[in-house]
Design a protein around this nucleic acid. Structure first.
Length: 861
DNA sequence: TCTTCCCGCCACATG
DNA sequence: CATGTGGCGGGAAGA
């Protein structure tokens, strides 16, 4: 898991106390705020009944004279209000305060500058018109299908066409007065700015470099988009445009389309997470960096991309999209959005990051939230959206106009994503994305209830820990919010803000330390497994000395603990699972009790700091089952891994909730089965006997692998690495698993078939890689029954044909983690393995998951 | 005329 | 201090 995911989790599962306790006066929906606003979207009365949205969506119509919408401001701002925009003599921006602080100016009167009844909307640019120029990448086939596959179940949108009348956007504004702040802006800044712009030539004075302005990255890491190989060399003619081509050809929507060609939304879970470098993308799209940021910001807000480091993002595709949408929807409902978003009345002067809160990402999330909570058919006019989302008190007309521009930007990207559709006959947008299941809300509520009890200890823990600055910031912000809950708008903003502020960072190298383990079976050990997190440290450079267990308090204070702690709240892998997982917040938890919903056809696995622990399902297939396990002291649950059989995305998701230890039940170690778990792209799939095609099991039984049994995984068009963990039952599985990792394969390689044989107790003794029929490389392993409990084995998946053994498992009788000679776990590789399972932060110093007293100086950085 | 939104300045954030 | 981010609004293309 990465920070962003966690942040999203934190955001959307925020403790109710984070939200407003004080019911807010819905000033935003009031006419005093919006001016005379008409929102005449047709909504079925039943749906509006009892809905707080009613007032918003059925406000009376009032036509007022048109006002000039361009140029000087056309809104009223009470003198003395904070609606001061512009730049002072010091060059600093005087931005509008955050919603929270904006709320301090309730006397402002936001008036829309927009005119009644928008003209004909621009028809969407033809998406495919320019794609031919840029789509010669090997992943073409996949990318071409990705968008079509996306949301194929939805029956969207043509409700609009069927009844276009239900969209009537009649937004008017009342009389608008020139605004002092606007005047000031014009006088102090924009005038000069526009003056300079008037004098410049767009092409010659272009400050932002285009892709062609950038030197080719010298580092291969920058040149290569991971998982896809080399970027296509960009046609020079495609990069030095700027003044060439029509406006449509350069639209953000089209750029997004191009982007999606290279980074398809459909991301196989078997595919290595791809990195995207801003410069490269800009080059690829034939645009400048600035535009890439526009796109990325939106994608990031949807959890489709995550920032890895400066100038680099990780592409996630739509894997988390639906969940994100679901959370947005749930949050929207929960916060009574948008009714209360506009009721920003804050008296606490809460400081917020105004720059962040105005970000395109936040705005995008709000926009989607608004669409999602709006009644069918999820249509909202631009004008209304602008006012509801950003039309804060005191916003002047120019401000709204600016935000309107941003909504256009967002909408264009969302359109390319297939989430939003322009309503042709109205200045409006319609949500046409996937149906966000109500179950998301239920899950959210469940999680809230669980996490509610955690918050207190969480806060205490925070105060006593040596948090990273980011952690401190987040926690302090949280505490502040808990103390002063007065503004829904500021809350939402803060929540969304935090979400955006938490980004994926470069992973630390991870390694596991085993321990002299003759006591594994008891599930108790005086020597505990450890997680070492080493920045950029190859595994084979690790000191494998086992450290003694330390006190709980120091453990709690460790970054590693926090990482685990956070990961324990990891929410999902695609297509299935995990609702919540408890780490007991400071109390080493050695028992777990999981409740499951939906069908649990395969036993979930606990990922702990040290390995994997299979759980048993009391009643497989039952709606609710008990899953219990016993772990050694201080072992922390990182993640719950389960699958509802195969990777079929259409299966009902499994919800597993791990409750505090006090609620646990007895767990019988003897019942721990042998498991084989395949790591795929940040998630885990428990592999059982059978054949899998495209992640879906097609043959075989569902029993865990036994000796001599085989499994295979056929990957059609997704020759990405697969990592196999063997969870050995005979030593409780806490840390004993072997890993087989194939390396990255070229994008254009043929379908890969992986097969492996495990032996009893999950030990892996021999691994082979072969290529069959010239089209498939085969990864196979055969078991011999020998005790080869741990080790890392690295295989190259693109080796030449033949059935020759490449490497054998590295055997380590002491059962400590040892690097295989040929294995070096780089950052990227470890990220590949644990990328979705750990919170990665670029460390300033080594931290250990379970710090030893005195630590391990040798590992300090 | 009005809507749409490209373009790139430049403030702020980050390294 | 350099450079990455991205808010912002002018103003032009397009309807």
């Amino acid at each position: 898991m990465d920070l962003l995911t966690f942040a999203a989790d934190a955001v959307f599962s925020a403790d109710p106390k984070e939200e407003l306790v004080t019911p807010l006066t819905p000033k935003k929906g009031a006419r005093s705020v919006f001016g005379e606003v008409t929102n005449t979207i047709n909504i079925s009365p039943e749906k509006l009944k009892n809905s707080p949205l009613q007032t918003l969506f059925t406000a009376p119509t009032l036509n007022t004279p048109k006002t000039k919408s361009r140029g000087l401001a056309s809104a009223v701002t009470t003198p003395g209000s904070k609606g001061v925009i512009g730049r002072g003599s010091n060059g600093k921006s005087y931005s509008y305060p955050s919603p929270g602080t904006e709320a301090q100016t309730p006397n402002g009167d936001g008036v829309s500058p927009y005119l009644t009844n928008g003209g004909s909307g621009r028809s969407p640019p033809t998406p495919m018109s320019n794609l031919k120029l840029l789509t010669h990448i090997a992943s073409m086939e996949e990318s071409l299908t990705s968008k079509k596959v996306l949301f194929q179940n939805q029956s969207v949108s043509d409700k609009m066409t069927q009844s276009p009348s239900f969209v009537q956007t009649c937004v008017t504004s009342s009389s608008a007065t020139k605004n002092l702040s606007s005047l000031r802006r014009y006088n102090s800044d924009c005038l000069g700015q526009s003056q300079s712009r008037l004098n410049r030539s767009t092409s010659t004075l272009r400050k932002h470099p285009t892709s062609s302005d950038y030197p080719r990255p010298s580092s291969p890491g920058n040149l290569v988009i991971e998982g896809m190989g080399q970027l296509p060399s960009v046609d020079e003619t495609s990069t030095n445009r700027s003044s060439e081509g029509s406006r449509k050809d350069k639209s953000l929507g089209l750029l997004s389309e191009k982007f999606l060609e290279q980074f398809p939304m459909e991301v196989s879970i078997l595919e290595t997470p791809r990195r995207l470098v801003i410069d490269e993308v800009a080059s690829m799209l034939g645009t400048e960096r600035r535009r890439v940021y526009d796109i990325i910001n939106v994608l990031e807000s949807l959890n489709m991309a995550a920032r890895v480091q400066k100038n680099m993002y990780q592409w996630r595709g739509k894997r988390h999209l639906e969940e994100t949408l679901g959370r947005l929807k749930a949050l929207g409902f929960r916060l009574d959005f948008p009714k209360r978003i506009g009721s920003s009345l804050s008296s606490d002067g809460e400081k917020t990051d105004t720059r962040r809160e105005k970000s395109l990402g936040i705005l995008c999330q709000k926009f989607l939230m608004l669409l999602l909570v709006s009644p069918e058919p999820h249509i909202i006019s631009l004008d209304n959206a602008v006012r509801m989302l950003v039309g804060e008190v005191g916003e002047d007309g120019e401000r709204l106009r600016t935000r309107g521009r941003r909504l256009y930007d967002i909408a264009n990207v969302l359109t390319s994503l297939g989430l939003v559709k322009r309503v042709p006959t109205a200045k409006a947008f319609q949500y046409v994305g996937p149906e966000v299941a109500e179950v998301e809300r239920e899950k959210l509520l469940q999680k809230e209830q669980l996490q509610c009890s955690h918050l207190t200890s969480d806060s205490v823990y925070t105060r006593t820990s040596q948090s990273s600055s980011l952690e401190k910031t987040k926690k302090q912000a949280m505490n502040t919010e808990l103390q002063s809950v007065s503004s829904t708008a500021s809350k939402i903003t803060s929540l969304l803000q935090r979400r955006l502020m938490c980004r994926t960072e470069i992973p630390k190298a991870l390694t596991f330390r085993g321990y002299q383990s003759n006591v594994c079976n008891e599930g108790q050990s005086s020597e505990q497994p450890k997680i070492e997190q080493l920045p950029m440290t190859p595994l084979n450079m690790m000191d494998s000395r086992a450290e003694q267990q330390t006190s709980n308090s120091s453990h709690q204070n460790s970054e590693g603990y926090k990482a685990s702690h956070h990961e324990a709240r990891e929410a999902f892998t695609s297509g299935s699972l995990i609702e919540s997982c408890n780490s007991n917040y400071g109390q080493p938890m050695n028992k777990f009790f999981c409740t499951t919903s939906q069908n649990v056809k395969t036993s979930p696995v606990l990922m702990v700091n040290g390995g994997l622990v299979p759980l048993t399902v009391a009643q497989p297939g039952s709606h609710t089952g008990a899953l219990t396990s016993t772990l050694p002291k201080n072992m922390q649950v990182i993640k719950v891994i389960t699958r509802t059989e195969g990777l079929n995305q259409q299966e009902s998701s499994t919800v597993i909730t791990v409750l505090p230890a006090v609620q646990t039940q007895t767990f019988s170690q003897s019942s721990v089965p042998s498991k084989l778990v395949m790591h795929v792209n940040g998630g885990f799939q428990q592999v059982s006997t059978g054949t899998y095609t495209n992640g879906q099991k097609v043959t075989g039984s569902s029993n865990p692998l036994g000796e001599g049994e085989t499994f295979s995984e056929s990957l059609q068009g997704n020759p990405s690495p697969c990592t196999i963990f063997t969870v050995s039952g005979n030593h409780s599985g806490q840390r004993a698993f072997a890993r087989v990792s194939s390396s990255k394969s070229p994008m254009n390689s043929q379908p890969t078939k992986c097969s492996a044989t495990s032996v009893s107790s999950g030990n892996l003794s021999k691994i082979q890689l072969s290529q069959s029929q010239g089209l498939q490389s085969q990864l196979s392993a055969t078991g011999s029954g020998d005790q080869v409990p741990v080790g890392f084995v690295h295989l190259q998946s693109n080796v030449s044909a033949g059935s020759k053994p490449l490497v054998g498992c590295h055997q380590n009788s002491s059962r400590q983690w040892q690097p295989s000679p040929e294995g070096s776990s780089t950052d990227s590789e470890l990220e590949e393995i644990f990328g979705n399972s750990f919170k990665f932060t670029r460390p300033k110093s080594l931290v250990t998951g379970i710090p030893s007293q005195g630590g391990d100086p040798g590992n300090k950085v």
